[in-house]
Simulated assay, not measured.
Amino acid sequence: MSLILIVLIALFGALVRTIFGFGEALVTMPLLALVGFDIQTGTALIGALGLLVALPATIRFRAQIDFTVVRRLVLGSLLGVPIGISLIKLVARGIVLHLLGVFLLVYGSYSLYKSLRQHLGKPRLQANSWDYLAGMVSGALGSAYNSHGVPVVIYGTLKRWPVNQLRGILQAHFVCVGIIVVLSQAFSGFWSMQVVELLLIIIPLLFVVIPFGNWISDHIARATLVKYIYVLLIVFGGLLVLQ
């Protein structure tokens, strides 16, 4: 039964990522912890699945990708990855995740309120140098907690990227950073035969989950999807605070 639960949790995370473009780790990691799954093994499993889901999504949204922005994000992430590896080994996991959770609750609630009142404000952080900082935070959270999508999502909403452009940049960034993150996790000892065995079970099921997620996404209006993204940030923040 525990194996079935782990597979279902991983597939649910893949579905969330396919529909919204991010968030699989923030859904799956708390759930895996609830069923007593090893943290490092779960981190490696979700990191690999995130990379696999990002590959077809990058192809799907390739016309919307600003590769100049992606390059700056990835360069920043290269600096952030070793910071994240050190973070998970030196700093109490609960402290970092609780702080992240509080931030997501505040930011998501404030942004959703403004969105519902149709007071989105002007784009912010327009200087290109901010791309590097967003990438650095993404790389750190990605290598430590597989949460490299959240900083980029928040950054993209601050810059008011159109939804499809945000999703395209996200997925291209996921592919580049995902490779770095998975390799860093492997060299840091996160991988085991259990991860490989689970991937062999889950990967064939992705051929059903990914098309289903794309179908759902295609039937959600772009403006509504933005509101759902803010709601997800609130939910994820609550999960991190409560775990």
Rank of each mutant, 00 (worst) to 15 (best):
M1V: 09
S2T: 07
I4D: 13
I6K: 15
F12T: 12
F12D: 07
L15C: 01
V16G: 10
R17Q: 15
R17E: 13
V27S: 14
G42S: 12
G42Q: 05
A44T: 01
L45N: 05
L45Q: 05
G47H: 00
L49M: 13
R60G: 03
R62H: 12
F67Y: 15
F67P: 03
V69E: 14
L75H: 10
S77R: 06
L78I: 14
V81H: 04
V91G: 04
R93P: 01
V96F: 00
L97M: 11
L99P: 01
V102P: 01
V102T: 06
F103K: 02
L104R: 07
L105C: 15
V106A: 15
S109P: 11
S109A: 15
L112N: 09
S115I: 06
S115E: 14
R117M: 07
L120M: 09
G121A: 03
K122I: 08
Y132G: 12
A134H: 14
A134F: 05
G139T: 03
L141W: 01
L141F: 08
A144D: 02
N146R: 01
S147C: 11
S147A: 15
G149E: 02
V152C: 00
I154V: 15
G156Y: 02
K159D: 06
R160H: 14
Q165E: 15
R167D: 06
I169A: 13
I169H: 07
I169F: 04
Q171E: 13
H173R: 10
V177P: 05
V181G: 01
V181R: 06
V181A: 06
V181M: 05
L183A: 12
S188R: 11
S192W: 00
S192D: 11
Q194I: 03
Q194Y: 00
V195L: 01
E197S: 13
L200C: 12
P204G: 08
L206W: 04
F207G: 09
P211R: 07
F212D: 12
S217Q: 11
D218P: 01
I220W: 07
I220F: 06
I220M: 09
V226Q: 14
V226T: 13
V226R: 12
K227L: 04
L232H: 08
L233I: 08
L233D: 09
G237N: 08
Q243K: 15
Q243T: 13
